[in-house]
Nucleic acid binder design. Structure first.
Lengths: 247, 247
DNA sequence: CTATTGTTAATGGTAAAACCATTATAATGA
DNA sequence: TCATTATAATGGTTTTACCATTAACAATAG
């Protein structure tokens, strides 16, 4: 018996049927992103259902990030672009419920950033390299702009990581990495008061990673990225322990 | 300006407020998994809201896999254990909407299984090793039971992968890997008619991976896992092309 | 003519009351 | 004792009515 991936068929729930029908239309692209579904009262007639039931269906589709509901005239349910924001939210819930810890998330991030750097080293075009070095130049500039520039440095830092994921050429990695970054920041940002030395070391790391990508040194890019991420996590953990001595 | 991770504050939506309040209670553990929320009509009074609005809130919580709604007397909203099933669903949607391809998913899997095997090699206890070898023994048995056993072999194969993820000691990897497996199977199972040689090769691979884990050879375990997964993906892709010649 | 201001109608958000469907439990009967 | 049936708790659905928001248009003032 193959595992069927079926979930227990809840008894007739009309709203679920409505959800399924609309979802199929959206995922199969028969309703394009940006387009609007008919108004609630029209949908009621189309599905031969009450407004309450229909609205329950819309709530689910909205929660799935498939539609976006706007108010007022010309309001209604607009089809959204597919995106991975649900992953970020789910990660956040797993952390919040203490099912996974920040240490787990940080460890996972090491693996992902390592893989991504390796793939980027295999696939980076010369145009990609140019972009990376332009970001690196900006980072270089901010690192020398005193404390004012440090926040900007951190922003560029993250941008470089995201760009490397893009270069890796696998959108799944982009979604995952964005989700991971979102959640790591949400919990670490409060402690984010970096010092001169950290900025310097961070910059050196980034330069070395980008260099390895440029030279298509897969293993080197990967291991450097992993070490870089690990260093960051360790640093943040220390910072956290200082602020919240015994938690 | 720090990135705040805030989303546009939709105007007063009472159901959203209800969702937030209940979600906090659940995620902070003040309502334990398995416990039941009050009946809809009671919740209406507690939140001073109408049943329709309250039900919209429940739909969202249900979609988030935070609660599980049962029918009949003693029915109601039961708090669920935290789990990663939302990830699997989200992955499925990304695939369905062709935002990511199966090749992307397979590539991602390579990275994850590589990391997981490496971590397992670092952390496996002797008890863990024993379990792995007992699974391997079962696989050995099924591989020699003729075509009847082959489906069982595939099941054990997956079980070994999952077990390695557990041994890695990071529950996030377990969730992610389960999600990935779910989705890969959902699309590949139809082609899953393995032959004698594939079973043999598969078995050899598993044995080598487990051996590397036993010997705490981190890099070796990792690279063997990656190659193993890659081989599987290639094989399935071929199979697919045979069945659906030009798609 | 242009800019501001008010009006309007489309559309989502909420409320309340009634009824149906499902199901664990208790009562009943063989 | 065991099977059957009745009961009541609870979610699922419908209907109707009204409120709140907002884009588009019209009216007015300058």
């Amino acid at each position: 018996m193959k595992p069927m991936n079926f979930k227990k068929a809840k008894q007739n729930r009309i709203f679920q049927d409505v959800v399924d029908q609309i979802q199929v239309e959206i995922l199969d692209g028969r309703i394009a992103p940006g387009e609007r579904l008919p108004a609630e009262r029209e949908l009621c007639e189309m599905f031969q259902t009450s407004r309450g039931t229909l609205r329950e269906a819309l709530r689910i589709l909205e929660q799935k990030s498939l539609i976006d509901i706007r108010l007022g005239v010309n309001g209604g349910a607009y089809v959204k672009d597919a995106n991975g924001e649900l992953m970020a939210e789910n990660l956040a819930m797993l952390i919040r419920s203490q099912t996974i810890s920040l240490a787990h998330l940080a460890e996972f991030r090491e693996g992902v950033e390592g893989s991504v750097a390796g793939l980027a080293a295999q696939r980076a075009s010369s145009a990609d390299i140019k972009i990376l070095y332009s970001f690196l130049a900006k980072a270089d500039h901010f690192r020398n702009s005193g404390t004012d520039g440090w926040n900007n440095f951190v922003r560029i830092d993250e941008k470089i990581h995201t760009e490397i994921a893009r270069i890796a050429g696998n959108p799944l990695y982009v979604f995952i990495l964005n989700s991971v970054h979102d959640n790591i920041q949400r919990y670490y940002d409060k402690f984010l008061s970096v010092g001169k030395e950290e900025i310097e070391e961070n910059y050196r790391d980034l330069r070395l990673i980008i260099e390895a990508i440029k030279n298509a040194e897969v293993e080197l890019a990967s291991s450097r990225a992993i070490k870089h991420v690990r260093k960051f996590s360790r640093y943040m953990e220390q910072k956290k322990r200082k602020v919240i001595p015994i938690q």
